[in-house]
Simulated scan of single mutants.
Amino acid sequence: MTTIWNATVSRIGGDAADMIEEGVIILFGEPVPPALFDVSVVHEGAESPTREVAAGDVITFGEQTFEVTALGDKANANLAELGHVVLYVNQPDQELLPGAILATGPDVIVPAVGASISVAGA
């Protein structure tokens, strides 16, 4: 697999852990808007993706791996411009919102600050 995008977790908002445990991960690159910090997993060190993320790609979040099943029509632009997407893991009834990525995998756990986030594909 070839890495498409990667970053490092720099901060985790106070309310983000509860959302993560429910399978909703809000990623935001530095600088994160203050109003969104509490619910976000903030990352740094990302460069623009080498190509658009697509269904079938794999997201690694800390020690866990998820398969992308669908992307909203703004997800790739938001990731490239802001480092921002909302990742819904194991949420089959979730409406596909423009900035969302739907994925499947294990139950999500909160990563440590310093953990890697990456997207890889064929």
Rank of each mutant, 00 (worst) to 15 (best):
M1T: 08
M1L: 02
T2C: 00
T2G: 00
T3A: 05
W5S: 00
W5T: 07
A7C: 06
T8A: 01
V9C: 07
S10Y: 07
R11I: 01
R11Q: 13
I12F: 00
A17I: 13
A17H: 13
E21K: 15
E21I: 04
E22A: 13
G23W: 08
I25L: 11
I25W: 10
I26S: 03
L27K: 02
L27P: 07
L27A: 09
F28D: 01
F28V: 03
F28Y: 14
F28E: 04
G29K: 05
G29C: 02
E30F: 00
V32D: 07
A35S: 13
L36C: 09
L36A: 12
F37W: 00
V41R: 04
H43T: 11
E44A: 15
E44R: 14
T50N: 04
R51N: 08
E52T: 09
V53Q: 03
G56D: 06
G56Y: 06
V58Q: 13
V58I: 14
I59R: 07
I59L: 15
T60L: 03
F61C: 13
F61I: 09
Q64G: 01
Q64V: 03
Q64W: 01
T65K: 08
T65L: 02
T65S: 15
V68S: 09
T69Q: 11
T69C: 04
T69V: 15
A70D: 15
A70C: 01
L71T: 14
D73N: 13
K74I: 04
K74W: 10
A75W: 04
N76K: 02
A77Q: 08
V85I: 15
V86K: 02
V86D: 05
Y88H: 09
Y88P: 00
P92V: 03
Q94C: 02
E95G: 05
E95C: 00
L97P: 05
P98E: 08
G99T: 06
G99F: 07
G99W: 05
I101L: 10
L102Q: 14
L102A: 15
L102T: 01
A103L: 04
A103N: 02
A103W: 02
A103P: 02
T104I: 14
G105L: 10
P106R: 07
P106K: 10
D107T: 14
V108K: 06
V108P: 06
V108F: 06
I109V: 14
P111K: 09
P111D: 11
P111I: 09
A112H: 12
V113A: 06
G114Y: 11
S116K: 10
I117C: 07
I117T: 03
I117M: 10
S118K: 11
S118T: 14
G121L: 12
A122C: 00
A122H: 13
